[in-house]
Amino acid sequence: MNDKINFKVNAALESLDGMSQAEPKPFLLTRILALQKRGGRVTAWQRIAEYIKRPVVAIPAVLFLLGLNIAVFSMKNISFKDNTTAKSAQGKYDFAINADGIYDSENQE
């Protein structure tokens, strides 16, 4: 058993013999020069900005915001209409009170 383990250990230790060098992906120089133009490595914030700028993200986000605006605006319109009916009703009521007052003053005379 020990011999077998030692054999495996030696095989693992010698497994790097005759290995060749791995190659990076092509056009490394072009990529480096592009990185240089951009001003070095991309930070996390830049990555987020890049992500947001993508049409797949940007267009739905703009549509969502537009929808939200329309929804808020139409809800305000409804509440504005409610307000005007309430105010007009209140106006009538005020008139009635005023009218009562007039009659009261007439009766006094």
Partner: peptide, 18 residues
Amino acid sequence: HPGVVLDKKEDAAILFKA
């Protein structure tokens, strides 16, 4: 490692872990 000889890949993976 892409540069390791095919029949030694398994042993090399264990060696890299070590």
